[in-house]
Nucleic acid binder design. Structure first.
Length: 707
DNA sequence: GAGCACTGC
């Protein structure tokens, strides 16, 4: 039995109000409009219902009345008049709304009902597909209209809108893609950027795009573009400043109070501390109260789940039983769904999760949150082009987000497995994604939008010049850029690359494929590479997996192996039983087919000939060598590998079919630093093909490695 | 020699 974790008496906080209240009393010298101060009340509001299945179309009037009553019971309803008066006259506004305020479902309706933005479409962006879909469903329901008429949504592979659509929910990435064909966003009268505090790379680029569109439309005397930035956290100064001091409207939500406990001492072993906390809660709290634990990754979560189950078996009589549920993105869907089911009476649910439960998945009934304060996240080093995946401290905003997961239906309790002093030293905000990613895609999209100067683009949080330069250099290598009168512009190839919803190097692979008569094969391979792995590897059945997979393995590498798997899948007519027998994720495989058909359509629109190499895998590998030549590694005399360009020591990832092989020269699709620098998805190539592909590049780079 | 946080077009 684990010993006491030793928490001092807790303080009472309202997680929303904790950081929020400070801002309320300290308006940062800008205009802060307090719209609502009375929180509380029953019923669930709009923004918080993401994970619920879309509601059925209402058909009976008592239901309609209930919907209307529910709308009126939302805290935001009392501020409706004030809100409309404000928004009517503003070009830009920042709306700070706590979770449960109903801002996402209500604001677009208020605008529409108030006749604001009716001349065109009101767009509401979301970082996630499920959110866009379920919000559109919810709002069309409230408006008593059929989904896709007045209210609709657009996400990749799924456009449920019509000529009548006036309120449109869409993913931020989708609106960005639309901006490539119309950078003034002429279809829209109003763009609402929701969940802005998440600072996804797409939302961040959109900030710049809508700001430029707003300005340009004004200059041209066109329909004004209203921009509303919605955020659930306090860091709204940046948003307000960026939109020339746009006023901040504040909406109180419906969060319940949460007690927060810090540890007395720093915890050196956060896993042990988490374990102790779980069982401490388990022995004290009623069994109906569920626990959510935040850890960093699959391996950790599976190990902790097993330990919890083992300990739970040997608890004294009278202790409730425990249902331990791991939760992470690569967990098969059916197992993810288990976290939404209620535990049997007298049994406590303990959900052990990655940060997927911070934003993407909302679980009802959580009373306790155990926050280790750790997260696994990607960092990017523009010098080396290396992506590093590392366990690190969360930011304060992230910690607040986790805490808030305890107070969604009722008051809650959060155990923070770090001291208050440690918490004070956390970074204020998570570094926005745009400063942590390879920017090649972003730069290609901005160039496709004909942004006057991508090097000085008005980002809200600017990536470093090195970072931008690295992306430009990569696009140059791919032949996407040319310099016209001192101005960077896209080449015809570059323009075509931007049409694909892919990383630039993958788009280039497809565009090169006709030259090698292998477009059919390349479309398949690129589709497989651009979704989550279709290979399912349950650790307990490793021998079985290996035996089954043997028949697909190609000595030419992972790309050809993946191609073999896809072909076998297609030959069986794509059935689920085949997937199960062969340890293939059927959901991901279905997605591959969808992606492939989308990419194929884009090729057809460009009048690309779509040919098959008919079993000639060498031409496929040549095509990969010609497009991925900047990502190559060579075998060294001592049996290790080093990248061709920077001589970075690298290793073959254990998931590769080439793990036990020693090919002389490979191209890889990704380099990832975890414990070591690993190459993922390798293809055996001939060094001569690489010279052919990029003689200049290799004259410079290969000489050193040959000497 | 041994492993992958989360989204999205």
């Amino acid at each position: 039995m684990p010993e006491e974790a030793g928490f001092p008496p807790g303080k009472r906080f309202r997680p929303g109000a904790g950081p929020l209240r400070r801002a309320g009393s300290c308006p940062h010298g800008r205009r802060m409009v307090m719209l609502l101060t009375a929180g509380g009340g029953g019923g669930g509001g709009g923004g918080g219902r993401r994970q619920q299945p879309p509601l059925a179309q209402p058909s009976v009037s008592p239901y309609r009345e209930a919907v209307e009553l529910q709308r009126r019971s939302l805290p935001i309803f009392q501020a409706r008049g004030q809100l409309l008066a404000q928004l009517r006259n503003l070009d830009s506004a920042v709306l700070l709304g706590e979770t449960g305020s109903g801002k996402t479902t209500q604001i677009p309706q208020y605008l529409y009902e108030g006749g604001i933005g009716r001349q065109a479409i009101i767009a509401v962006t979301q970082p996630r597909r499920v959110a866009a879909i379920s919000l559109a469903t919810r709002v069309s329901d409230e408006k008593r209209t059929e989904l896709g008429k007045l209210v609709g949504y657009t996400v990749r592979f799924d456009d449920v809108t019509s000529e009548d659509t006036k309120i449109k929910f869409l993913t931020d990435g989708m609106l960005l893609r639309e901006a490539i064909s119309d950078s003034l966003l002429r279809k829209y009268s109003c763009v609402i950027l929701d969940e802005a505090h998440e600072r996804t790379i797409h939302t961040d680029v959109l900030f710049g795009v809508v700001k430029a569109a707003q300005k340009r439309r004004k200059e041209l005397g066109k329909l004004p573009l209203k921009v509303i930035v919605m955020s659930a956290t306090m860091d709204v100064d940046l948003f307000s400043q960026y939109f020339s001091g746009a006023p901040v409207l504040y909406l109180e939500g419906r969060q319940h109070p949460i007690q927060i406990f810090y540890t007395k001492q720093p915890q050196h072993d956060y896993l042990h501390a988490a374990l102790v906390s779980v069982f401490q809660i388990h022995q004290e709290a009623p069994s109906s109260q569920d626990i959510l634990v935040f850890l960093t990754g699959q391996e950790e979560i599976e190990a902790m789940s097993k330990t919890c189950r083992d300990i739970a078996k040997h608890l004294p009589d009278g202790c409730p039983s425990m249902l331990v549920l791991p939760l992470y993105a690569s967990l098969p869907y059916a197992q993810q769904l288990r976290v939404f089911q209620g535990a049997p009476k007298g049994c406590r649910k303990v959900i052990i999760s990655t940060n997927i439960a911070e934003t993407s998945i909302t679980i009802t009934g959580i009373k306790y949150v155990v926050d280790t304060g750790m997260v696994k996240a990607k960092k990017y080093n523009p010098d080396s082009g290396l992506e590093v995946l590392a366990v690190q401290r969360v930011s304060k905003t992230q910690a607040w987000q986790r805490t808030g997961r305890a107070g969604r239906e009722d008051s809650g309790i959060c155990y923070r497995l770090y001291t208050e002093d440690e918490f004070e030293k956390f970074e204020k905000m998570t570094v926005p994604e745009i400063q942590r990613c390879n920017l090649a895609s972003v730069m290609l999209q901005l160039l496709a939008m004909k942004v006057p100067n991508v090097l000085t683009f008005d980002f809200m949080s600017k990536p470093s010049p090195d970072h931008v330069q690295a992306a430009i250099a990569q696009l140059e290598l791919l032949g996407a850029l040319e310099n016209k009168d001192g101005q960077l512009t896209l080449t015809p190839i570059g323009r075509k690359m931007a049409a694909f919803p892919l990383e630039p190097k993958f788009a280039k692979t497809i565009l090169l494929s006709p030259k090698f008569h292998c477009t059919e094969e390349v479309l398949t391979i690129i589709s497989l590479l651009s979704v989550d792995s279709v290979l399912y590897n349950p650790p307990s059945r490793r021998d079985e997996v290996q035996a089954v997979r043997k028949k697909f393995i190609s000595s030419e590498g992972d790309h050809i192996t993946l191609l073999n798997i896809y072909r076998a899948f297609k030959n069986t007519g794509g059935n689920k039983d085949w997937c199960k027998e062969n340890f293939v994720h059927s959901k991901n495989m279905m997605l591959v087919a969808e992606v492939r058909s989308q990419l194929r359509d884009i090729c057809l629109k460009m009048s690309m000939p779509i040919l098959s190499s008919r079993g000639d895998t060498e031409s496929v590998r040549r095509c990969l060598a010609h497009s991925l030549f900047m990502s190559t590694a060579e075998l060294q005399p001592d049996g290790s590998y080093a990248t061709t360009d920077t001589h970075q020591p690298v290793a073959i990832h254990p998931s590769s079919v080439l793990f036990h092989c020693k090919p002389a020269c490979v191209v890889y699709t990704e380099l990832l630093f975890t414990n070591k620098c690993y190459m993922r998805d390798l293809c055996v190539v001939d060094a001569e093909w690489l010279y052919e592909a990029a003689p200049d590049f290799f004259r410079r780079k290969l000489r050193a490695s040959r000497n």
